[in-house]
Design a protein around this nucleic acid. Sequence first.
RNA 1: GGGGAGGUGGCAGAGCGGUCAAUCGCAGCAGGCUGUAAACCUGCCGCCUUCGGGCUACGGAGGUUCGAACCCUCCCCUCCCCA
Length: 387
Amino acid sequence: MFFTITHTHGAARRGVLQTPHGAINTPAFMPVGTQGAVKAVTHRDLEALGVEIILGNTYHLFLRPGAERIGRLGGLHKFIGWDRPILTDSGGYQVFSLAARRKIHEEGVTFRSHLDGSEHMLSPEGAADIQGHLGSDIAMVLDECLEHPATPERARESVDRTLRWAKRGRDHFLKLRDRTAPDAFFTNIGQAQFGIIQGGTSPDLRKRSAEGTLEVGFDAYAIGGLSVGEPIPLMYDITEQTAQMLPADRPRYLMGAGTPVDLVECVMRGVDMFDCVMPTRNARNGQLFTSHGRLNIKNAEFAEDMRPLDEQCGCYTCQHFSRAYLRHLFQAGEMTSGTLNTLHNLHFYLDTMNRIREAIVFRTLEELRQNYRRIFPAQTADSTLEG
RNA sequence: GGGGAGGUGGCAGAGCGGUCAAUCGCAGCAGGCUGUAAACCUGCCGCCUUCGGGCUACGGAGGUUCGAACCCUCCCCUCCCCA
């Protein structure tokens, strides 16, 4: 994995990340394809949109169809028919999102499967093994995504456990990479592994987590545990502080964020990579991102509106279909509703990243930020401070 | 002509003397989704409301009762079966 920074503007960086399956222009947005599929769209759609990297999930793919099976079939890329880069999350987010179905202990996390109720254990070593079978270009170390709010004791305990897991996860990954583990199995010999900084909303714990994780030493680092319900301005502050603690010559990945405004704000704080379910999930739920803000296609006001979602948008959906038709498709529960809406939202997100990369080169990020704040007023730092 | 069933809020369909402005579902309206248990979830859904409540309601008209969507009488209207 090679990371080259070509331009900087303030804390923002414009770069290129080389992986075994090709290059990624950063700052990058990675659509989420949890089960080896970005919901509602085909790989051909993603390629046409210019998607350079997608996410898969260790937990989901481990439960179904099984990591070893994917390994036997030649790895995740071959299995799903996608030859561009893939990043796999470790299952750390499921520690948070499936809190009711899991138990954390020193060894790892025990999950009760959301599919059939069966019990499964995910350890730092196991997560590395699974991702080795999957053969993603970037593997994430198993962490504990801390909930918000959390007591100081709970946060401290969680950070330290994540650090111990980081050491174990990294050691095991290196053994696999060096073929010194008994059943080392990599379908992608050039796989990189990212460490994850936790620490909730405490600057001190973030520092502790960053120092410990850097000491373990990963190929690059992610900021985890944010956009889990904390106030947005606080999320930006923690992102900024944490990003500054990370090596300047490695990509920085803010996990799980965010809204279009989050993307701009966090690039300006030094983030290079993002992933978020928002464009895809919200699309299926009828919420579209446009140059005029969020548009809820479910609303009755669009029933006879023959205009495109966004007259400034060049996506397939906006080039061919009206709001009236898209509303009808949603109301009727047609599958193409999710598809057309997803194509639009992903286009909006990728276009946002294009604008961001361009604004770094031309040093116009502040202008872009003001523009996005104006379009999405409810998501700006200022308005979320109250209450 | 004979016999039977039934008319409840947009639809469908419970309720069968008070706890019913009326179960559940669908449709409708609005909101929420940030490393996806999410084509999901939440709220509203007779009229008015200062959200406490007020008003009008269960085909129509009478009646019984402290009290009726629920019981009785008559009327109107559907549907099914046999001729």
